Computed example of a mutant assay.
Amino acid sequence: MNASLKILCLFFTLYSFDVFAQPVTPGEHGLKEFRIEDKKLGTINFYVDTTNLKSKSPLFIETNGSGGMPLCLYIKGQKFVTTYTSYSSLLLDKTKDKFHYVILGKPGTAFCDTLSLDMGVEEFQKNGAKAVMLNYRFSPEYTKRLSLYWRVEATKVVVSYLIKHGFWDRTKLVAYGYSEGGQVVPALAVAEKRITHVISVVGSGLNQFYGDILEWRIKAQRGEISQQGAQDSIVSYMAKVTDIYKNPNNVTKEFGGHSYKRWASFGSSIPFEKPQKVKYTNLLN
Protein backbone atom coordinates (compact mmCIF):
# COMPACT_ATOMS: atom_id res chain seq x y z
CA MET A 1 0.00 0.00 0.00
CA ASN A 2 1.58 3.30 -1.05
CA ALA A 3 1.81 6.38 1.16
CA SER A 4 -1.10 8.20 -0.48
CA LEU A 5 -3.46 5.26 -0.01
CA LYS A 6 -2.39 4.90 3.62
CA ILE A 7 -3.25 8.54 4.23
CA LEU A 8 -6.60 8.23 2.48
CA CYS A 9 -7.45 5.19 4.60
CA LEU A 10 -6.61 7.29 7.64
CA PHE A 11 -8.98 10.01 6.41
CA PHE A 12 -11.80 7.49 6.09
CA THR A 13 -11.08 6.27 9.62
CA LEU A 14 -10.79 9.63 11.36
CA TYR A 15 -12.98 12.01 9.42
CA SER A 16 -16.55 12.37 8.26
CA PHE A 17 -18.35 9.58 6.43
CA ASP A 18 -22.12 10.03 6.29
CA VAL A 19 -24.50 7.92 4.20
CA PHE A 20 -27.53 10.04 5.09
CA ALA A 21 -26.85 13.80 4.97
CA GLN A 22 -24.87 15.31 2.12
CA PRO A 23 -23.71 18.86 2.92
CA VAL A 24 -21.65 20.05 -0.04
CA THR A 25 -21.18 23.82 0.33
CA PRO A 26 -18.87 25.65 2.76
CA GLY A 27 -21.91 27.21 4.45
CA GLU A 28 -23.45 23.80 5.09
CA HIS A 29 -20.23 22.86 6.89
CA GLY A 30 -20.32 26.03 9.01
CA LEU A 31 -17.57 27.68 6.98
CA LYS A 32 -17.20 30.88 4.97
CA GLU A 33 -15.06 30.81 1.83
CA PHE A 34 -12.42 33.44 1.09
CA ARG A 35 -10.19 33.77 -1.97
CA ILE A 36 -6.86 35.49 -2.52
CA GLU A 37 -5.19 35.92 -5.91
CA ASP A 38 -1.43 35.89 -5.46
CA LYS A 39 1.05 36.60 -8.27
CA LYS A 40 3.47 33.86 -7.20
CA LEU A 41 1.16 31.29 -5.59
CA GLY A 42 -1.93 31.57 -7.77
CA THR A 43 -5.41 31.26 -6.26
CA ILE A 44 -5.54 30.57 -2.53
CA ASN A 45 -8.89 29.41 -1.22
CA PHE A 46 -9.39 29.30 2.53
CA TYR A 47 -12.28 28.79 4.92
CA VAL A 48 -13.15 30.25 8.31
CA ASP A 49 -15.84 28.99 10.69
CA THR A 50 -18.88 31.25 10.90
CA THR A 51 -19.60 30.92 14.64
CA ASN A 52 -18.11 34.25 15.72
CA LEU A 53 -17.05 35.50 12.33
CA LYS A 54 -17.21 39.22 13.13
CA SER A 55 -15.37 39.07 16.44
CA LYS A 56 -11.64 39.15 17.11
CA SER A 57 -10.46 35.79 18.42
CA PRO A 58 -7.38 33.55 18.61
CA LEU A 59 -6.66 31.69 15.37
CA PHE A 60 -6.54 27.91 14.96
CA ILE A 61 -5.20 26.89 11.55
CA GLU A 62 -5.61 23.27 10.50
CA THR A 63 -3.04 22.06 7.96
CA ASN A 64 -4.40 18.83 6.53
CA GLY A 65 -2.71 15.81 4.99
CA SER A 66 -1.36 14.98 1.57
CA GLY A 67 -3.07 14.75 -1.78
CA GLY A 68 -5.18 17.01 -3.97
CA MET A 69 -8.48 15.94 -2.46
CA PRO A 70 -11.19 18.56 -1.99
CA LEU A 71 -12.21 19.36 1.57
CA CYS A 72 -15.56 17.79 0.72
CA LEU A 73 -16.08 14.90 -1.74
CA TYR A 74 -19.59 13.96 -2.84
CA ILE A 75 -19.54 10.26 -3.73
CA LYS A 76 -22.28 8.66 -5.87
CA GLY A 77 -22.44 4.88 -5.82
CA GLN A 78 -25.06 2.27 -6.73
CA LYS A 79 -28.21 3.31 -4.86
CA PHE A 80 -26.33 5.40 -2.30
CA VAL A 81 -24.62 8.73 -1.95
CA THR A 82 -22.27 9.91 0.76
CA THR A 83 -19.93 12.76 1.60
CA TYR A 84 -16.35 12.49 2.78
CA THR A 85 -14.37 15.37 4.25
CA SER A 86 -10.60 15.77 4.43
CA TYR A 87 -10.71 18.28 7.27
CA SER A 88 -11.49 17.45 10.89
CA SER A 89 -15.08 18.32 11.77
CA LEU A 90 -14.21 17.34 15.36
CA LEU A 91 -11.52 20.02 15.50
CA LEU A 92 -13.93 22.54 14.02
CA ASP A 93 -16.51 21.72 16.71
CA LYS A 94 -13.95 21.87 19.53
CA THR A 95 -12.34 25.16 18.49
CA LYS A 96 -15.05 27.30 16.92
CA ASP A 97 -16.35 28.84 20.17
CA LYS A 98 -12.94 30.06 21.39
CA PHE A 99 -10.99 30.38 18.14
CA HIS A 100 -11.46 31.24 14.52
CA TYR A 101 -10.98 27.82 12.92
CA VAL A 102 -9.20 28.23 9.57
CA ILE A 103 -8.29 25.72 6.86
CA LEU A 104 -6.78 26.21 3.42
CA GLY A 105 -7.83 24.34 0.32
CA LYS A 106 -5.22 22.76 -1.94
CA PRO A 107 -4.14 24.67 -5.08
CA GLY A 108 -6.51 24.25 -8.02
CA THR A 109 -9.01 22.36 -5.87
CA ALA A 110 -12.62 23.39 -5.26
CA PHE A 111 -14.20 23.04 -1.82
CA CYS A 112 -16.33 20.14 -3.03
CA ASP A 113 -16.17 17.80 -6.00
CA THR A 114 -18.21 14.79 -7.19
CA LEU A 115 -16.98 11.25 -7.79
CA SER A 116 -19.08 8.42 -9.23
CA LEU A 117 -18.17 4.84 -8.28
CA ASP A 118 -19.59 1.63 -9.71
CA MET A 119 -20.10 -0.15 -6.37
CA GLY A 120 -22.76 -0.74 -3.75
CA VAL A 121 -22.66 0.57 -0.20
CA GLU A 122 -21.33 -2.68 1.34
CA GLU A 123 -18.43 -2.87 -1.10
CA PHE A 124 -17.76 0.82 -0.59
CA GLN A 125 -17.56 0.41 3.16
CA LYS A 126 -14.91 -2.30 2.65
CA ASN A 127 -12.94 -0.87 -0.26
CA GLY A 128 -14.03 2.76 -0.53
CA ALA A 129 -10.67 4.32 0.31
CA LYS A 130 -8.88 2.35 -2.38
CA ALA A 131 -11.64 3.05 -4.91
CA VAL A 132 -11.47 6.78 -4.28
CA MET A 133 -7.69 6.76 -4.57
CA LEU A 134 -7.78 4.89 -7.88
CA ASN A 135 -10.57 6.94 -9.45
CA TYR A 136 -10.19 10.51 -8.21
CA ARG A 137 -7.82 12.64 -10.27
CA PHE A 138 -5.99 15.57 -8.69
CA SER A 139 -6.16 18.79 -10.70
CA PRO A 140 -3.28 19.82 -13.00
CA GLU A 141 -2.97 23.03 -10.99
CA TYR A 142 -2.44 21.00 -7.82
CA THR A 143 0.31 18.94 -9.44
CA LYS A 144 1.94 22.07 -10.85
CA ARG A 145 2.01 24.04 -7.61
CA LEU A 146 1.91 21.73 -4.59
CA SER A 147 5.12 21.78 -2.57
CA LEU A 148 6.25 22.49 0.97
CA TYR A 149 7.04 26.02 -0.23
CA TRP A 150 3.49 26.55 -1.53
CA ARG A 151 1.85 25.30 1.65
CA VAL A 152 4.01 27.44 3.92
CA GLU A 153 3.84 30.60 1.82
CA ALA A 154 0.10 30.31 1.14
CA THR A 155 -0.57 29.94 4.86
CA LYS A 156 1.55 33.02 5.58
CA VAL A 157 -0.51 34.99 3.06
CA VAL A 158 -3.73 33.85 4.75
CA VAL A 159 -2.41 34.76 8.21
CA SER A 160 -1.56 38.27 6.98
CA TYR A 161 -5.03 38.60 5.43
CA LEU A 162 -6.76 37.55 8.65
CA ILE A 163 -4.71 39.98 10.72
CA LYS A 164 -5.24 42.86 8.27
CA HIS A 165 -9.01 42.29 8.28
CA GLY A 166 -9.37 42.17 12.06
CA PHE A 167 -9.92 38.45 12.74
CA TRP A 168 -7.06 37.94 15.22
CA ASP A 169 -7.13 39.26 18.77
CA ARG A 170 -3.30 38.99 18.91
CA THR A 171 -3.27 36.28 21.56
CA LYS A 172 -2.89 32.66 20.38
CA LEU A 173 -2.16 31.71 16.79
CA VAL A 174 -2.13 27.92 16.62
CA ALA A 175 -0.79 25.91 13.69
CA TYR A 176 -2.06 22.32 13.80
CA GLY A 177 -1.01 19.79 11.18
CA TYR A 178 -1.38 16.06 10.67
CA SER A 179 0.47 13.71 8.30
CA GLU A 180 1.86 15.93 5.53
CA GLY A 181 0.50 18.89 7.48
CA GLY A 182 2.48 17.66 10.46
CA GLN A 183 5.58 18.23 8.34
CA VAL A 184 4.35 21.64 7.17
CA VAL A 185 3.71 23.27 10.56
CA PRO A 186 7.29 23.08 11.91
CA ALA A 187 8.55 24.83 8.76
CA LEU A 188 5.63 27.25 8.96
CA ALA A 189 6.49 28.15 12.56
CA VAL A 190 10.03 29.08 11.50
CA ALA A 191 8.79 31.15 8.53
CA GLU A 192 5.81 32.80 10.26
CA LYS A 193 7.00 34.45 13.50
CA ARG A 194 3.48 35.36 14.63
CA ILE A 195 2.59 31.70 15.28
CA THR A 196 2.50 31.08 19.03
CA HIS A 197 1.69 27.34 19.24
CA VAL A 198 2.58 24.36 17.04
CA ILE A 199 0.88 20.94 17.07
CA SER A 200 2.40 18.32 14.76
CA VAL A 201 0.54 14.99 14.58
CA VAL A 202 1.86 11.85 12.79
CA GLY A 203 4.21 13.87 10.63
CA SER A 204 7.64 12.37 10.09
CA GLY A 205 10.45 13.70 12.28
CA LEU A 206 13.15 12.84 9.75
CA ASN A 207 13.30 13.16 6.00
CA GLN A 208 10.13 11.35 4.91
CA PHE A 209 12.02 8.91 2.70
CA TYR A 210 13.31 7.21 5.84
CA GLY A 211 9.89 5.69 6.59
CA ASP A 212 9.97 2.93 4.00
CA ILE A 213 13.64 2.20 4.66
CA LEU A 214 12.98 1.71 8.36
CA GLU A 215 9.94 -0.45 7.59
CA TRP A 216 12.01 -2.83 5.47
CA ARG A 217 14.70 -3.04 8.16
CA ILE A 218 12.14 -3.76 10.86
CA LYS A 219 10.49 -6.48 8.76
CA ALA A 220 13.88 -8.09 8.21
CA GLN A 221 14.67 -7.92 11.92
CA ARG A 222 11.36 -9.62 12.70
CA GLY A 223 12.06 -12.33 10.15
CA GLU A 224 9.13 -11.33 7.94
CA ILE A 225 11.52 -10.85 5.02
CA SER A 226 15.19 -11.71 4.56
CA GLN A 227 17.97 -9.21 5.18
CA GLN A 228 18.93 -9.50 1.52
CA GLY A 229 15.33 -8.91 0.49
CA ALA A 230 15.26 -5.75 2.60
CA GLN A 231 18.54 -4.56 1.12
CA ASP A 232 17.36 -5.22 -2.43
CA SER A 233 14.19 -3.21 -1.79
CA ILE A 234 16.18 -0.34 -0.32
CA VAL A 235 18.63 -0.25 -3.24
CA SER A 236 15.73 -0.11 -5.72
CA TYR A 237 13.97 2.53 -3.63
CA MET A 238 17.08 4.72 -3.36
CA ALA A 239 17.49 4.68 -7.13
CA LYS A 240 14.05 6.35 -7.34
CA VAL A 241 14.91 8.78 -4.54
CA THR A 242 18.11 9.73 -6.35
CA ASP A 243 16.14 10.41 -9.53
CA ILE A 244 13.76 12.64 -7.57
CA TYR A 245 16.61 14.75 -6.23
CA LYS A 246 18.10 15.00 -9.72
CA ASN A 247 14.77 16.40 -10.97
CA PRO A 248 13.47 18.44 -8.02
CA ASN A 249 11.09 20.64 -10.04
CA ASN A 250 9.66 17.97 -12.32
CA VAL A 251 5.85 17.83 -12.23
CA THR A 252 5.40 15.18 -14.93
CA LYS A 253 7.23 12.36 -13.16
CA GLU A 254 5.43 10.83 -10.18
CA PHE A 255 6.25 8.62 -7.24
CA GLY A 256 3.67 7.27 -4.79
CA GLY A 257 0.92 9.37 -6.34
CA HIS A 258 2.79 12.68 -6.05
CA SER A 259 5.02 14.71 -8.35
CA TYR A 260 8.80 14.75 -8.01
CA LYS A 261 8.46 18.44 -7.15
CA ARG A 262 6.32 17.65 -4.14
CA TRP A 263 8.65 14.89 -2.88
CA ALA A 264 11.83 16.94 -3.36
CA SER A 265 10.41 19.96 -1.55
CA PHE A 266 9.42 17.95 1.52
CA GLY A 267 12.63 15.92 1.33
CA SER A 268 14.62 19.14 1.67
CA SER A 269 13.20 19.79 5.15
CA ILE A 270 13.89 17.87 8.38
CA PRO A 271 10.84 18.55 10.61
CA PHE A 272 12.62 17.41 13.78
CA GLU A 273 15.18 20.20 13.41
CA LYS A 274 12.67 23.03 13.03
CA PRO A 275 11.53 23.35 16.70
CA GLN A 276 15.12 24.14 17.64
CA LYS A 277 14.84 27.31 15.58
CA VAL A 278 11.65 28.65 17.11
CA LYS A 279 10.39 29.53 20.56
CA TYR A 280 6.95 28.10 21.19
CA THR A 281 4.63 27.45 24.13
CA ASN A 282 2.31 24.63 25.12
CA LEU A 283 -1.27 24.83 23.85
CA LEU A 284 -2.49 24.00 27.35
CA ASN A 285 -0.91 27.17 28.82
Rank of each mutant, 00 (worst) to 15 (best):
L214C: 12
V201K: 00
G166P: 01
S236V: 05
G108I: 03
V48F: 07
L5T: 14
V235M: 11
S179F: 03
V241S: 04
R262F: 14
S139W: 09
R262L: 15
I163L: 07
T25G: 09
G105F: 02
V24F: 13
L284Q: 08
I213W: 03
Q125L: 14
K96A: 08
V132W: 01
A21W: 11
K261I: 03
V241M: 07
L90G: 09
G229V: 06
A154S: 15
G267H: 02
F266S: 02
Y245P: 02
E273A: 13
F99Q: 01
P23G: 10
T83Y: 10
F167T: 04
T82S: 15
L10H: 08
S236K: 14
G68F: 03
E273S: 12
F209Y: 12
M1L: 11
N45P: 00
V184W: 01
K253F: 13
H29L: 09
T82K: 02
K277A: 13
F124S: 04
G256I: 04
I61M: 05
K279D: 00
I234N: 02
S200Y: 01
V184G: 02
Q227K: 10
D169P: 05
V202K: 02
K246L: 15
S226N: 10
V251A: 10
G211L: 14
V184Y: 00
K279V: 02
L59V: 04
T242A: 11
T50P: 05
I244R: 01
Y260S: 04
S204N: 08
E141Y: 05
I44S: 04
E180H: 01
Q227H: 06
H29R: 05
Q208P: 05
T143N: 13
V202G: 05
K126R: 14
T196P: 00
V185K: 01
Y84T: 11
F266T: 03
Q221D: 13
R194H: 10
V241N: 03
S55A: 14
S226E: 12
T51V: 12
G67D: 05
G108V: 03
L146W: 08
S16H: 08
F12P: 03
